[in-house]
Amino acid sequence: MDRLVYVYKSNKKLRSFLYIVEKDVFSHIPSGLMDAFGAPEFVMVFKLHADRKLQKITPEELSKALDEKGFFLRIDLQDEEENMLNQERKRLGLPPLEREQIADYFH
């Protein structure tokens, strides 16, 4: 499982990230996805291994996606929901909710 993974953010879609195995190689990504994603902006490179802590996915799931498709697309919507809910609570003069409390609203 040890391999380098390159991470890019979307210039069109807020909180959207594309993980690939070769730097700046997007020829295997479906054209519709690339059109929606926009021009990728390089964010970072990291070494993927079994003990690596990742957000929203396990190292095994990421490795499987990279093996099968050659990429993984991550879209972080929960942060936006959390932000919107707490913005409304602030507007109403209420204290912000913690992440665990917010999760209860969406289940």
Rank of each mutant, 00 (worst) to 15 (best):
L33R: 11
D24Y: 12
D51M: 04
D76R: 08
D104L: 08
L4P: 14
G70M: 03
L18F: 10
S16T: 13
R74D: 10
E98L: 06
D24T: 09
M84K: 15
M84I: 05
L97G: 09
L66T: 07
P96L: 03
L85E: 06
A39T: 15
D79W: 01
R15N: 15
G70D: 08
E61F: 07
T58F: 09
I75S: 10
L94Y: 13
F37L: 08
K23R: 15
L94C: 02
L66R: 04
K12F: 12
F106E: 06
N11Q: 12
E68N: 07
F42W: 13
L85I: 14
E68R: 00
G93L: 04
P59K: 11
E98P: 10
E82H: 02
L54S: 08
R3V: 09
R3P: 08
R91P: 03
I57Q: 10
A103D: 12
D24E: 15
K53Q: 14
M1Q: 10
D35T: 15
P59R: 10
K13I: 15
H28E: 03
E81D: 12
E88T: 11
L18N: 04
N86E: 07
E22C: 03
I57A: 07
N83K: 15
D67A: 11
R99N: 14
D79P: 01
F37R: 06
